[in-house]
């Protein structure tokens, strides 16, 4: 078990009267370093070493490490701006922002990434035509995941849809 805040305050009282500036405790399940900071302040750095006691049958599903996928020569990969859950459409049931064959500009929104309950738009970042959609709707994507592939040589003719 860890030390409670009351335990830590007890340690502080002992330290305060001892004139010591630092105390390092190593117990079986945790380490604790208490330091004097300036005239009156104290900090604690605690590390709980105890491994969780997970009930049997609980398989830890590690997030699969995805190698940075290659895109064909001359093509441009669109990556999410931050790690999160990728959505292809503005809301469930709505048509996707873009499909294969659509023209995009640098500022075209091609999806949304939800990270920590906040939504961030994904911009194409390049002008061209979508030739492949790789990430599925609702898929957790890291910043090197390839969401879609754009062919910059096939520039969409006329005004690019969704440029904003």
């Amino acid at each position: 078990m860890d030390l409670t805040p009351d335990d830590v305050r007890d340690v502080l009282r002992v330290l305060d009267s001892s004139g010591l500036d630092e105390l390092h405790l190593e117990l079986a399940d945790l380490t604790l370093t208490v330091r004097r900071e300036g005239a009156t302040g104290w900090t604690a750095e605690q590390q709980v070493l105890r491994r969780p006691v997970v009930e049997s049958g609980a398989a830890v599903a590690a997030e699969p490490e995805r190698p940075r996928a290659a895109v064909p020569e001359g093509m441009v990969a669109v990556h999410p701006p931050l790690v999160g859950t990728f959505y292809r459409a503005p809301q469930p049931g709505a048509p996707p922002f873009v499909e294969v064959g659509d023209g995009v500009g640098e500022d075209t929104v091609v999806g949304i990434v939800e990270t920590m309950k906040m939504m961030t738009p994904v911009h194409a970042g390049v002008r061209g035509t979508v030739v492949e959609v790789r990430a599925g709707n609702g898929e957790l994507t890291g910043t090197d995941a390839v969401l879609l592939v754009v062919d910059p040589a096939r520039d969409a003719t006329g005004p690019v849809e969704g440029s904003r």
Binding site: D2, R50, R51, P52, V53, V54, E55, G57, A58
Partner: peptide, 12 residues
């Protein structure tokens, strides 16, 4: 997680 280490037991 830290709460998992602090709890007596963890269930998936």
């Amino acid at each position: 997680s830290l709460p998992a280490r602090l709890a007596d037991r963890v269930v998936r």
